[in-house]
């Protein structure tokens, strides 16, 4: 992978990380409310997959979708404004954290009912297939979502009609507090695809380049008209399920172990031909960003200067997003009615 693309990935991962950490802070300050599900730890999945897509492909995601929207190009300000419930938010303050939409960027929404993304995705794919377009649909879902009936129903239809869908499982190994072995008889999600003869691959979801490569490959096949693919990305969320969840059900050693393989660090490692020693990784502090920086300067691939610049740039982006959200107006009830009645297009009903 060329250095520019790699840096773009790094930028988006860094943005995803910092954006989410800032969300946590704004939540505690009372600027964001409701349920807030954050993404730290899982950045490699959204970044790797969406960077491998065309702008004409559709994205369907869950309630843990801020970073998917950001990577897709929804301006950070519009995402933050939505979390603040503002009129300038990408869903006009009506949807909030779990319901980001941006039709122009074919970001077809965040859905909060587990198992809803599959039918929506195959619906979009059906339209693409019917019109014979070279597009595809990316359908994100969690490990917990594969036990919903819609998973099987939708996979069956997708395979039956050879619909251009890439199912992407973000297997972070937990459905809220229930570990994958306690909720799934077959914890390897990719194996389930076989039941519908859907080609599949399991990748290291902490390795952005691996995810990117696997996605490119799958999309090539899909566009060739062979039908759906399923990609299982093994990943881990560093935080609790949502802001209200301390995540105490996970042993600290497990969390620590996963934090050692911080995807941000892995991404950076790819920029260097020399693999770091375990001592080097261990020597870095607990903060993933610090670790990265240390590593970069050691290798001279991303000089200290550049990294600091990148970090400063991302910090500024997040800061600007917060400022934009803070300064934006609230929607009115009139806006809410308009959102409800937009599709009526002024038709007289009575």
């Amino acid at each position: 992978m060329d250095r520019d693309r790699a840096l773009a990935l790094l930028h988006d991962m860094l943005l995803g990380r910092k954006f989410e950490e800032r969300c946590a802070r704004e939540y505690m300050n009372g600027n964001i409310a409701g349920f807030l599900h954050l993404y730290p730890g899982e950045e490699a999945v959204a970044v790797g997959v969406i960077h491998a897509c065309e702008a004409s492909d559709y994205i369907v995601s869950t309630y843990r979708e801020h970073v998917h929207a950001l990577v897709r190009g929804v301006p950070a300000g519009e995402v933050m404004a939505e979390l603040f419930g503002k009129r300038t938010g990408c869903s006009r303050g009506m949807g909030g954290s779990m319901h980001l939409f941006d039709p122009e960027r074919r970001f077809m929404g965040g859905y909060a009912i587990v198992g809803e993304t599959y039918p929506v995705a195959i619906g979009l794919a059906y339209g693409i297939a019917m019109r014979n377009l070279p597009e595809a649909v990316i359908c994100f879902f969690g490990d917990g979502a594969v036990n919903q009936g819609t998973f099987h129903e939708s996979l069956n239809m997708a395979a039956l009609w050879k619909l251009p869908v890439l199912f992407v499982c973000e297997n972070n190994q937990y459905a809220i507090g229930t570990e994958v072995h306690r909720h799934s008889a077959v914890p390897e999600v990719y194996k389930r695809a076989a039941a519908y003869r859907i080609p599949t691959e399991r990748v290291d979801g902490m390795d952005v380049l691996a995810v990117h490569k696997a996605t490119e490959h799958a999309l090539r096949q899909i566009r060739a008209g062979t039908g759906p693919w399923l990609l299982e990305c093994l990943t881990y969320r560093f935080r609790g399920h949502s802001m209200a969840d301390p995540g105490h059900y996970r042993p600290p050693v497990e969390v620590k172990a996963h934090q050692r393989i911080d995807p941000l660090e892995l991404a950076l490692r790819e920029l260097s031909p020399i693999y770091p020693t375990p001592e080097q990784i261990a020597a870095a502090g607990p903060d993933a960003i610090l670790k990265l920086r240390q590593y970069c300067s050691d290798q001279g691939h991303l000089p200290d200067e550049d990294f600091r610049q990148l970090e400063a740039q991302v910090d500024a982006e997040v800061e600007a997003a917060v400022r934009f959200a803070l300064e934006s107006p609230e929607p009115s009830l009139e806006d809410a009615w308009q959102a409800l009645l937009a599709n009526r297009r002024g038709e007289t009903l009575l």
Binding site: A33, M94, G95, S97, E330, W337, L340
Partner: peptide, 14 residues
């Protein structure tokens, strides 16, 4: 008779 808006002020008004 409207889906609940996310915005807190509007939510309270519904």
């Amino acid at each position: 008779d409207i889906p609940t808006p996310y915005n807190g002020t509007l939510e309270a008004r519904t």
